[in-house]
């Protein structure tokens, strides 16, 4: 029986991808473009499969014709992951697709799909540098979930067909590669509505933004933002690999009065608001514009 180990397969953010899917126009049926035969018993999140059924997979795969939107794994160029994280974005596409990670001996470790290949590679590089030395990337042009899964399957099938082995990172129970996508939880000002604050709210905000390097005040939670601007801001911070704290200004149970208090504190009337080292960096527009100009990476690194 194939078992699926992880529910957050899309590395960048499962919530934003869900919303992304829901706003994308309906696609043509995939069958017209792709004909990857389904070989694994996969549920919607395919990044991890059991190695048990693969005893016979080599034989089964031998007469399989795989035509897919991405190049074959064997034909895809192996790219070294640069030591400097700033160079990483230039080496790998920031678009959606499938990627294969190799260790120092060019042993395939993991095949993943992502909404941003460069962000995922960066995350792997940070969490398991010794296993993430070179990477092959295949951009999927029409990155709906089905197309991404198909691309992933085609690479998995090709690798298993060639070696008879499942990449270690894709074996069920292996949490090395996907654990990082478990998001931090949002910070809360109080444990509940009935709890009285002993310090003024403004003082609490002041401490919060000064004691944490990057704080994002957003509408909704970081895993399920309730406003498009908040969602964009979280997407940017995650793509930059920023370790940030977040607070939900709509959570009246735990953050009673935060919305109005923060507007006064920062003299800024809208949300989201992003603070860096205790200073208001701006909202969504400013963050977006700084990212486009390439100013963010250096800023957050300091």
């Amino acid at each position: 029986m194939a078992t699926i180990a992880n529910t957050s397969a899309l590395h960048s953010s499962s919530s934003s991808s869900r919303t992304l899917n829901s706003i994308l126009p309906p696609r043509k049926p995939l069958a017209s473009r792709l004909s990857c035969t389904q070989r694994f018993n996969l549920s919607p999140n395919p990044l991890s499969i059991s190695s048990r059924p693969n005893v016979s997979s080599k034989k089964r795969l031998s007469n399989l014709h795989v035509i897919c939107a991405v190049k074959k794994l064997a034909e895809t160029e192996l790219v070294a992951v640069p030591a400097e994280t700033e160079e990483l974005a230039g080496k790998f596409p920031s678009s959606s697709g499938v990627y294969a990670v190799y260790d120092g001996n060019t042993e395939l470790q993991f095949i993943g799909i992502s909404r941003s290949i460069s962000a995922s590679v960066l995350a792997h590089r940070k969490s398991v540098p010794e296993l993430c030395v070179t990477v092959k990337a295949g951009v999927v042009d029409e990155p709906d979930r089905t197309a991404l899964t198909q691309a992933w399957k085609s690479w998995m099938e090709e690798h298993i067909g060639a070696t008879g082995k499942v990449p270690p990172g894709n074996e069920s129970g292996n949490a090395i590669w996907v654990k990082r996508s478990q998001k931090k939880s949002d910070l809360r000002l109080t444990p509940g509505r009935h709890v009285q604050l002993t310090v003024p709210l403004e003082e609490l905000i002041d401490r919060l933004v000064k004691e944490n390097k990057v704080v994002a005040f957003i509408k909704g939670s970081r895993s399920a933002p309730q406003c498009g601007f908040s969602q964009r801001v979280i997407g940017i911070l995650e793509r930059e690999g920023v370790d940030f704290e977040s607070l939900d200004v709509l959570d009246e149970d735990h953050n009673t009065g935060l919305r109005e208090a923060l507007k006064r504190y920062s003299n800024w009337p809208t949300f989201p608001q992003i603070f860096l080292n205790g200073e208001l960096l701006g909202g969504c527009d400013i963050l977006t514009s700084m990212q486009e100009k390439g100013e963010l990476t250096a800023l957050f690194k300091k």
Binding site: P269, G282, G283
Partner: peptide, 24 residues
């Protein structure tokens, strides 16, 4: 940028009080 946005927000203070929800 923060200063520029503040200039705009300050000019639109009344509107933000009276139902204007967000400006990009």
């Amino acid at each position: 940028l923060v200063k520029r946005h503040r200039m705009v927000y300050d000019l639109l203070g009344e509107e933000l009080q009276s139902g204007l929800h967000a400006v990009s």
